[in-house]
């Protein structure tokens, strides 16, 4: 989640005060990601240092500093908006590691492990859906965020189903067999880079 870029986006609408930025941010993201003020100001300073943002001087009557986006900032924002995140690396998923490890552990019913996780994720999805269900038509941001979470969880659940069916089809192997071969470890190495 890129807070600097999000702030840039907010500033691109018009110059504003730091506190206001925080309020706007939370409102726009359905209050899912609370930011503390310090985090906002630190980020703004960093942006200013990089020349993406500039600020007015502090007002004499104690009013807040006003920040505004620069041309460089606008370019940076545009680039960021149009660049999809890097998908080269698979995420270091705790769940995947659990499953990979459990493949060879004796006395572990992998199906049960998968089911526990599945249930848990589905419960989480139920929760998400409940919130989405209660959101009104105006809550576009809330819906988007809820959907994002749902799809993410859905993907995991689907992977669990796929894992289940692969496991069903695998040949039965004794737990103390250790199948180690160079090509296999080499493949692993490239995956994890």
């Amino acid at each position: 989640m890129s807070v600097p870029h999000a702030l840039l986006a907010l500033l691109s609408e018009g110059p504003t005060f730091g506190l206001r930025l925080r309020q706007e941010f939370e409102a726009r993201t359905g209050e899912v990601w609370p930011l503390n003020v310090g985090q906002v100001y630190t980020t703004l300073q960093r942006l200013e240092r990089d020349g993406l943002v500039e600020s007015d001087e502090e007002g004499a009557d104690g009013s807040q500093k006003r920040y505004r986006i620069t041309a460089a900032g606008a370019t940076e924002l545009a680039t960021w908006l149009h660049t999809p995140p890097d998908t080269a690396l698979p995420p270091r998923d705790e769940l995947i590691i659990k499953v990979l490890v459990s493949l060879r552990l004796p006395g572990v019913d992998l199906h049960e492990v998968l089911q526990v996780h599945r249930r848990h994720f589905v419960e989480a999805m139920q929760h998400c859906t409940q919130i989405k269900a209660r959101a009104t038509d105006d809550d576009l941001e809330l819906a988007l965020v809820a959907d994002a979470e749902l799809f993410r969880l859905d993907a995991v659940v689907r992977w669990l189903d796929a894992a289940d069916s692969r496991l069903k089809r695998r040949p039965v192997r004794k737990p103390d067999e250790v199948a180690v071969s160079s090509p296999r470890s080499a493949r692993k190495a490239t995956v994890w880079g």
Binding site: F121, V122, E123, M125, Q126, T129, F151, D154, V157, R158
Partner: peptide
């Protein structure tokens, strides 16, 4: 799963 998540109980 997304469909199922609308249910009270899965």
């Amino acid at each position: 799963a997304q469909l199922a998540s609308w249910a009270d109980r899965v």
